[in-house]
Amino acid sequence: MPNKLISLAEAGRRFSWDGMCYASGAALPVGSDALVFGRELLRQKRKDLHAIFHCCGQQLNLLAAAGAATKAECGFAALEVVGFANGLRRAVESGRLALEDYSNLAMALRLLGGALNWPFVPATVNIGSDLQDRSAFAPDAYPSREKIPAITDPFSGKEIGAFSPLKPDVAAIHVTLADANGNAILLGTEWSRFELSRAAKRVVVIADAIVDPGCIRQYPNLVRIPELLVEAVVYWPFAAWPHSSPGMYDMDEEHMFFMNKALASEQGTADYIRDFVESYSDLDSYLDMIGRDKIAHLSDSVSSFLLDPYRRWILPADEVARLTAPDAGSKEIAA
């Protein structure tokens, strides 16, 4: 069985470039988001990203605040009960980032369209509103006839709309569990991670835990992202922090508010990047940065029981580290 485990830094080098169409998030803001991959994009000084996020989480908030994303498409652009996404808001209001608005179903349908290689997706939502008429990417067209053009249903003759399909260059998808080959299990709602994994040209999964392949063979129905779609696997506990990961850890309320407050200003963003993006050198120092007491607290989640069926297969960190050694990529693992 191929071993696709690579380090986060290597994943960042191999799967990102300036100007790429980058998809992540794919969950509502306080759910799982491959946030640590966004931190890595900043560490590697990526810029001019075209971001596709089903919903804006702290990752898009951070990329927008830092000026790394100049275009974004999403369905919901805030942090739910935590508040407006200050970094994204600042970038949009200042005109540094063009945010193309769709609804949450529209984003899922557009990813489905990309996954199926459809030329367009029939739109029965978003039509008749300014989501159809206004385009941040083509601001002079009003009412816009390019973003969600009106088409005629060939069967009923009724006017509907057409959504453009999405095929991001790279998707960094947060998953709860993956084996070293890239078979992944997601606890909690998928949002559109299933569709995204089929729509993106290249997929990296970022897993909170690595499991023995026996786990995958025990629960094949639950493997919604099979290895054949996945190019690389990154092991990174608390990859979604300060978001939550059902079964694994709760949202870090304190840091969610702290981070969003920081991203509200240029100086705050610079300080945040210094302290929480560039400050760690490996997984251990990342976890130290979060704080070991905090990690114990967040891990004591009301949702922890969701992980119970899988615990016996979770590989210890030192074994995962051995598998992720620089030359491990060429090794075969006995499955």
Partner: peptide, 23 residues
């Protein structure tokens, strides 16, 4: 704190997707 929050995930009978729920 949000729709995917553990305060709901801890008491669900089914997890699916946005395409399923909204579609």
């Amino acid at each position: 704190w949000g729709i995917e929050c553990n305060r709901l995930a801890a008491n669900a009978t089914s997890f699916t997707s946005a395409l399923d729920a909204l579609g």
